[in-house]
Write a protein that binds this DNA or RNA. Sequence first.
DNA 1: CCTAGTAATGTTATGCTGTAACGGTCAAGG
DNA 2: CCTTGACCGTTACAGCATAACATTACTAGG
Lengths: 173, 173
Amino acid sequence: MAKRSDTGEAPPLGFVEHDHGACRAAALAHARAVCVERGLKLTETRAAVLDILLESHAALGAYEVLRRLGAARGSAPQPPIAYRALDFLVANGLAHRIERLNAYVACARPGADHAGAFMICNGCGAVAEIPGEAAAKGLSRSADALGFDIARAVVEAEGSCPACRAASPESGS
Amino acid sequence: MAKRSDTGEAPPLGFVEHDHGACRAAALAHARAVCVERGLKLTETRAAVLDILLESHAALGAYEVLRRLGAARGSAPQPPIAYRALDFLVANGLAHRIERLNAYVACARPGADHAGAFMICNGCGAVAEIPGEAAAKGLSRSADALGFDIARAVVEAEGSCPACRAASPESGS
DNA sequence: CCTAGTAATGTTATGCTGTAACGGTCAAGG
DNA sequence: CCTTGACCGTTACAGCATAACATTACTAGG
Ligand SMILES: [Zn+2]
Ligand SMILES: [Zn+2]
Ligand SMILES: [Zn+2]
Ligand SMILES: [Zn+2]
């Protein structure tokens, strides 16, 4: 495949093979560091939810998170438990909400600026997070022309990841 | 205001003053033409739902459409009635789904290519539909670099329209 | 005309997504 | 001690969406 150091971009996790154990540990460590730095509390529940999201680079619905949280605890927590933790993670850039799926994914670019864009594979459910600049640039030019002030941009592309394209080429061009 | 003929782009309805009665009639006429051309049936229910969406350039939730449909008929239709009509309109490019809002808006660019992007005003709920090219270009370059095949892109910016910025400038820069 | 097929609508029931509201727990600080 | 504030636990409900099946309407063929 293409080299990836030639553009200076971060490697796009989600579709590429990588040491996910390290990936997960690094994200968790980063979360702890961020919370210390900002005076936030990464409580047991929040850490557990983040860890659940970090199980893979797929997006999980709130109720799926809730189920796994219940399995991890032995009890059966109610929806607000999951939503509050997810809201905390999203508000602090540790996770993202995928609007197209009404689902949540752990942040794959710890510490980045966080105007991210996402590529969602319909085959395997993997989600890759990429810098949003490319899309945001064109978008903000359009917004300027309109006099519109962008507070937040949702950029989500749905399609087939390299692995899924290789596995079922009938849907290709 | 800024001239709008200097870029060759279509005028961005939704945020600009315009003769909305004509806008609505033209959209309805276009819908009829499209259906005739493609051998589709713009039934009473479908036309009614499209007309409801065309009441303004704001997005409506399915249940709000349902309520208005009930008001227009005198009966109280069930959710699938609205969803089926909305699905038909979306499938044929006569309306669009706004993922961020779980809501639907009439197409404001009849006959266009339909890889549109949307600007959603948090103040007044107006939605402007703009050509998606600007964002799509950067996005597809990223996708190519990843080996990702984009089937559909969701591009939705949330913020303040010119009118709402003027009305409440405290949230400005 | 009658019939069979298809497309759309009507109806029932249910599941997924998200939040309001209130009470309990625990730690920090006067 | 007693307040304050942040978080957690629980109940109840609101909003979004679809599966499944019954019914109606339109259409093509006999
Ligand atoms: Zn990973
Ligand atoms: Zn895939
Ligand atoms: Zn209009
Ligand atoms: Zn506005």
